[in-house]
Amino acid sequence: MAYARDLTAIRGLIASHKRWDRVFAVCGLLALMLGVLTFTALFVDMAIDGFPRLSWDFLTSFPSRKPAQAGILSAWVGTAMVMLVTAFVAVPLGVAAGVYLEEYAPKNWVTDIIEINITNLAGVPSIVYGLLALGLFVYQFGLGHSVLAAGLTLALLILPVVIVATREAIRSIPQGIREGAYALGGTQWQVCSDHIIPYSMPGILTGVIIGMARAIGETAPIITIGALTFIAFLPAPPVMAQAPFVNFEWLFSGFTVMPIQMFNWTSRPEAAFLQNAAAAGFVLVLMTLAMNGLAIYLRYRIRRNIKW
């Protein structure tokens, strides 16, 4: 009898645990839906508002005072140029800093202070980076109100995110891999370059996605360092037919970016400009998705090759 009573008790226990599982699953789903539905609602609303304006002309025209003729050519090219600089600067610097902190840095109070500061940097308002960059990049280094200055500013902004993501990714690599590599006589650099960095690449890419998605929507620091609003020409293309074939003039060109163009349009009195802003927002989301899609694809490719 005692045995049967125990069994009922255990069954009751299992049932109650399962109930809690379901409760949590529902809570989790609700939490997920809250985010997804909000985004979907905003995105659909924007798509409906902006869709009539989306056309090839919209992507290949310069801004104009006439809403029907205005386009986002200078804005999306500007955003693409700035993002390119940001990625080229933030990823190597962030990964190097993360690897150093995890693998090389001695564990002492100086490292601790650096760690705490990096985590705090992720929470600094972006306008502060803009002000810093205005003094440092624009005037001190004499880079001017250029694509390069903007790219470096955004790189600084997302550096903490990349560093933190790199470190988390490195920490998830089993200690045995490291020990095995050292046991075979690998130097610290060989261990890092052949094992640690490749294995942590998927995690790093996740950090890069989050960072770049933040950077692409930033307006305040870009305005602070002196981005333009009306610019109806593109810088000389980076590749040329005659020697020296490459041209870095675009790095020093004036520019505007998508969020600035959108913000300018939303503040105009004519309702047709609001439509333009919605269409530009739609394109910006697509650009972000394309960027993330590339990173996710790379992550998938790399993960497939990791076997341990």
Partner: peptide, 26 residues
């Protein structure tokens, strides 16, 4: 800004891009 933008737009069109004009909002 809207006035300068309009003038810049027309001026560039008239000069066929030989002179470039940029307008910022600070």
């Amino acid at each position: 800004y809207p006035i300068s933008e309009a003038v810049a737009e027309e001026f560039q069109k008239m000069k066929k891009g030989a002179i470039k004009v940029t307008v910022g909002i600070s």
